[in-house]
Nucleic acid binder design. Sequence first.
DNA 1: CGCTTTTGACCCGCGC
DNA 2: GCGCGGGTCAAAAGCG
Length: 369
Amino acid sequence: MNDGCQWRKYGQKIAKGNPCPRAYYRCTVGPSCPVRKQVQRCADDMSILITTYEGNHNHPLPMSATTMASTTSAAASMLLSGSSSSSSTAAVPGNLHGLNMYVSDNNNNMNSISSRPPFYFSNNNNNNSPYSPSPSYPTITLDLTSTNNNNILNTSSSPPHSSSSHSNYARFSSRFAPASSLNFGAASEPATWGLHNGAGILNYGIGNVGRSGNAAHYRMSGPAAGPSSSSSHHNQSMLADSTMVAAATKAITADPSFQSALAAALTSIIGKNNNSSGKVVTSSSRGGGDQPSYLMNVKASGDANTAPSSTTSLSRTGSLSHHGQSAAGSGLVFQAPSSSSSSSSPHSYSMPAFTAAARDASTSPSEDN
DNA sequence: CGCTTTTGACCCGCGC
DNA sequence: GCGCGGGTCAAAAGCG
C-alpha cells in the first residue's frame, strides 16, 4: 500500500504464530529519518495486510503524503468518533477516548501521513486506485507516528526502538481513557464495530440489520441519546448518510477476518507493552447491559515514572464462535499471557490475548492453540 | 552504477 | 546461564 513515503526494506522475519513473514521498512525520505514500519499479513486472512508505523518523521513529507482529500475517511471518521458534522467536514481524524480510528477507502487518497489518524482501516478494493495495483488487499494500519496533533503518540523523546516501558507503545496505552473499550461484534451476530466506554455511554458501530441473499445491509448504531444532543464533546448523534454506509460496509466486508486482523494489529501494540508494568493482565466478564459482554482488560501503566497507570479494555458481545457455543455464563474466555504456558495447553495462547480473541471470533475454540 | 531486496548472522531482552 | 523470539545489521544479489 503506497502511503506517500519512500521506504527501504531492511529486514524480514517469520514471527511466531504467523506463517507469513513480517517485513521491516525504514523511511528513506529523510537522511536519518527514524520512522519505521512493519508490514505483515494477517494469519487468519492473508488477504489482509497489517501495517504498523512507528516514529516521527524528521523531514517535510512529500506532497503525495501530505494531501488528504478523502471524503470517505472523513465520513468514517465521524462514524467512529461520533461526530455529527456533515460529510463536508474536513478530514479530521476521529478522537474518542484517545483512540483515533476511522474507516477508509484506499481509493480516496488515503495516503497522507501528516493528517491521517494513527489507527485506521483501509479497504482498497477498488482497482481503479493508482495506489492499489492489482489485487485488492484490505489493510489495517496502525500509525504510531506523531505527525499531527490528533495523533495519540508523541515519540519525539523516545529512542526509535526502546524495548523498555518507556517505549512509545507504553505511552500509547497510557493515553487510553481508563474506561474506554473497543467493541468487537460477535462473528455470528450483527457486527457492531466501534468504541464505547465501560458504562455504555458511547457505542458507535455498524450494525448488520439484515441480509438479502449475500447482501448485507448495515446501519449506523449509536447511543440512545437524541441526534441533536450536544451536551458533551462526545456528540452522540449519528449520521447514516450513504457515504458513511459505503465506508462502513467496506470495512465490514472482511468480517469476521476483519476482527482477526484488527486483533492482530492490536496485538502488535499490546505485545510491546507486555512487561511487568503493562501487560494483558486479566480477562473477565463485565456484563454491563442486557447482553453478555466480555471484556479483556489491559493494564498499561506505561512510563512508570511519569505516566499514571491506566486500564483499557477490549470487549466483544454476544456469542464467541460460529458453532453455537455461547460464551454466556462460561466465565473466563481469554487467558492472560501471564498465566499461560505457550502453546502446550489447549486453553492457553502463546500470543497475547487479542489474538486469542480473534480466533475465538472466527474459529471453533477447540482449534485454538 | 546506484539503489533496493534478500537473507543469514547478530544483538538483546525476557522468561524459565 | 541458557534458549527463545523479535528486531537489526550488513554483505551479497537483484534490478532498472
